[in-house]
């Protein structure tokens, strides 16, 4: 069962509602998704795991709509991105937090003060200053190495917008990471 392809497992879930097959899919994709959502939520582990769980639930409920034209992981990211956007929208309305906290740019001092730097957390913290669109596009492109068209599918935005988001994101991220020393990361 564990060696079955995603496609075969999805077929079983679609036709037989086989929960065991779905569990294999969850097991296979959960780590990547949980990490990506940690990067997207400024390393809020609780929120990232809640969103991941919700993503898999949504995926199970709407698996019949998955046609297989994209990779299963891309489809999962698409659901996760929409959930994340909705979550931030609700949170912003409640004035708890926001997706575009532009005045929250990390200062260069922040990195040097931390004795034991953690690459992943630092990166997530630096990404926090980016709008959600740029953050997601940048992560999918530079970390997950997805193509522009895959990102366009996931985020449901035109190719041109993807390219712009990545370029702008890179500029802002470079500024945010100025003074950060990668040698000190563990």
């Amino acid at each position: 069962m564990i060696s079955a392809t995603d496609q075969a497992l999805i077929k079983r879930v679609q036709t037989l509602k086989c929960q065991d097959s779905f569990s294999v899919l969850v097991e296979r994709h959960q780590s990547d998704l949980r990490y990506s959502l940690r990067q997207m939520t400024s390393w809020d582990e609780g929120l990232a795991d809640d969103l991941s769980q919700e993503t898999f639930l949504k995926a199970y409920q709407s698996i019949k709509t998955f046609k297989g034209s994209a990779k299963f992981s891309s489809w999962l990211y698409r659901i996760a991105y929409n959930l994340m956007i909705s979550h931030f929208r609700v949170a912003r309305n409640r004035e708890v937090t926001g997706i575009e906290i532009l005045d929250d740019t990390p200062s260069s001092q922040m990195w040097t003060e931390t004795s034991q730097q953690d690459l992943h957390r630092d990166l997530a913290r630096a990404m926090k200053a980016l709008p959600a669109t740029q953050r997601m596009a940048l992560h999918l492109n530079l970390h997950r190495e997805l193509t522009h068209s895959e990102i366009s599918y996931i985020m449901e935005i035109p190719l041109g917008t993807v390219k712009t988001a990545i370029n702008r994101g890179k500029i802002t991220l470079r500024q945010n990471l100025a003074g950060w020393n990668s040698e000190e990361t563990k």
Partner: peptide
Amino acid sequence: PYYGGKDFVSRVA
């Protein structure tokens, strides 16, 4: 990092 999936998978199930 790789996140162990046992707990997570059972939570989803």
